[in-house]
């Protein structure tokens, strides 16, 4: 699998993501500066976490107009797989590639901790290596991660099985106490209607190796490899 990781001014998870994709998942991976107008050969585009453009105006609002994003929009329209992590999720929402908006956390705090996530659907290219209902532990680090969508959008997201990950407790119960940021319906990660674009607030690239606590984040990258007919290197 050939992967491209975008780099905006203020991205700060680009190198971690590149490391996991190339050294752990064994993908041919390139970092790509946001001024580039072409993606080149790619099976997966990752929009990484960080604070693109200092989060000025709204998170992701300015990055979405970077030249590379037009190429990402074309890539996604042709069915290419796109994964947005944290700030990448915010950018994909601003770009209209995913529905909804990420708003300031309910308690106004910057959250940096591990959360539990319930895998809602395992039939997607992003979660295929998981079991449905499986509980994953993953870190979050954000100030604007409260998922909001208008009622009709939220209903459509649920009906079309577009919610892939929900904040839950250690037993997989989706409760208000387990909701770290006030996201509607405890939403932590969604896909688009076509199923080829996913965004999530947690950072799977930060726990993709057992040396870093647990390697549960690797399951997302493993899923993408499986969807591309490949497997993790032994």
């Amino acid at each position: 699998m050939k992967a491209v990781v975008l780099v905006f001014p203020g991205s700060n998870c680009d190198r971690d993501t590149e490391h996991v994709l190339s050294r752990v998942a064994g993908c041919e991976t390139r970092l790509l500066w946001h001024k580039e107008a072409e993606l080149g050969e790619a099976d997966l585009v990752v929009v990484p976490g960080g604070f693109s453009y200092g989060d000025y105006l709204r998170t992701g609002a300015i990055a979405r107009f970077s030249p590379v994003m037009q190429a990402v929009e074309r890539f996604a329209a042709e069915g290419g797989r796109v994964l947005g992590i944290c700030n990448g999720f915010q950018i994909l929402c601003e770009a209209g590639l995913l529905p909804g908006t990420l708003m300031t956390n309910r308690d106004l705090r910057f959250l940096c901790k591990d959360v539990h996530l319930r895998v809602e659907h395992a039939e997607s290219p992003f979660t295929g290596a998981c079991r449905e209902g499986e509980v994953l532990r993953m870190p979050v680090a954000h100030h604007g991660g409260s998922f909001f969508a208008r009622p009709e959008t939220l209903t459509a997201l649920e009906e079309n099985r577009q919610v892939l990950l929900r904040y839950c407790d250690g037993q997989g119960r989706v409760t208000d106490e387990a909701n770290p940021n006030g996201s509607l319906n405890n939403i932590a990660g969604i896909r688009n209607a076509a199923g080829n674009v996913m965004g999530l607030m947690p950072h799977p690239e930060r726990n993709a190796e057992s040396a870093l606590g647990n390697a549960q984040g690797l399951k997302l990258f493993e899923s993408l490899l499986q969807a591309a007919g490949e497997a993790l290197p032994v």
């Binding site: 105006l57 709204r58 609002a61 300015i62 107009f65 601003e94 909804g100 908006t101 708003m103 909001f148 969508a149 208008r150």
Partner: peptide, 8 residues
């Protein structure tokens, strides 16, 4: 296009 997010 830029200054306002019509969603919110």
């Amino acid at each position: 296009r830029l200054l306002v997010n019509p969603n919110t």
